[in-house]
Design a protein around this nucleic acid. Structure first.
Length: 254
DNA sequence: CGGGTTTGACCCGCGC
DNA sequence: GCGCGGGTCAAACCCG
């Protein structure tokens, strides 16, 4: 090896290696920022969905209050009372979507449809088809007052567990209800039962298991204010905005 | 071809 | 007994 080549080798060693190290650290930083960006996108989806569910819940509350205010009038009571029984869930869907599909973690087989007297929207009848001999049935019908609301009434108890994929998705509750239709379960992107509407905001990139171990109580009431506080603190933080902008710009060039 | 959906027919309970 | 309305059946159809 000549003196010249030795010189180049040493130059390479002293100049390129630090650059490689820096490149590696930048790569890692980039990876972290991209992950944060993805997480934030997911959270935004969840928040939008939660907002929709809150509006639907408000509507149901007002309907229930309306029905109880008519209790002194027996005739009115007979016609207008709205039963809110535990086997009923209200689901907000796209009013233009006539599918009458409710995602609840089970697989259903439709066996009938009927137009009822008190509601122009047809009522669909489903039987659970996830396990042979499962006695559970459900009726699904659009709410008369609010076309975007679907009422699902359940009868009986399942003799099996919900499908695995649904369970995984439910446990990983930070994710929005996705339509990765790997199974034939009814999971459109626009609907979610109220039981699942509470989505914790967590920007700490915690794992689902950590999330699961947190106490569930009081989450729904405090979530809204927490969300606002988090959003405000994030948007008011210039360094965060700059980092986010950089991350977005980098993601475009990669 | 198997499984799901559609839809008209049928069954059954209830009120008159 | 009759009519009405909700629930179910099952043949035809559709779709992957």
């Amino acid at each position: 090896m000549s003196m010249q080549s030795l010189y180049f080798a040493r130059t390479f060693h002293f100049q390129v290696e630090p650059l490689q190290v820096e490149l590696e650290s930048l790569r890692k930083e980039n990876q972290t920022l991209r992950f944060m960006l993805e997480t934030m996108n997911i959270k935004i989806d969840s928040l939008q969905q939660q907002l929709q569910e809150c509006k639907a819940q408000e509507l149901i509350t007002s309907l229930t209050q309306c029905s109880s205010s008519h209790e002194e009038d027996p005739e009115m009571n007979k016609r207008a009372r709205i039963e809110v029984n535990p086997a009923q869930i209200y689901v907000r869907t796209d009013p233009k979507d006539n599918s009458l599909v409710v995602r609840d973690g089970y697989q259903w087989r439709k066996y009938g449809q009927k137009v009822t007297k008190d509601n122009p929207s047809p009522r669909a009848y489903f039987r659970c088809s996830m396990a042979p001999g499962c006695p559970v049935k459900k009726k699904v019908q659009r709410c008369v007052e609010e076309k975007s609301l679907v009422v699902a009434t359940y009868e009986g108890e399942h003799n099996h567990d919900p499908c695995d994929q649904w369970l995984r998705q439910s446990l990983n509750s930070s994710l929005s209800p996705m339509d990765t239709a790997a199974t034939k379960t009814q999971f459109p992107a626009t609907t979610v039962p109220f039981q699942q509407a509470v989505v914790p905001l967590d920007l700490t990139l915690s794992s689902p298991s950590q999330e699961k171990s947190r106490p569930a109580e009081g989450r729904s009431t405090s979530t809204n204010t927490t969300i606002e506080q988090c959003l405000a603190s994030l948007t008011n933080d210039p360094s965060f905005t700059a980092a986010l902008a950089t991350a977005v710009a980098r993601s475009f060039t990669m």
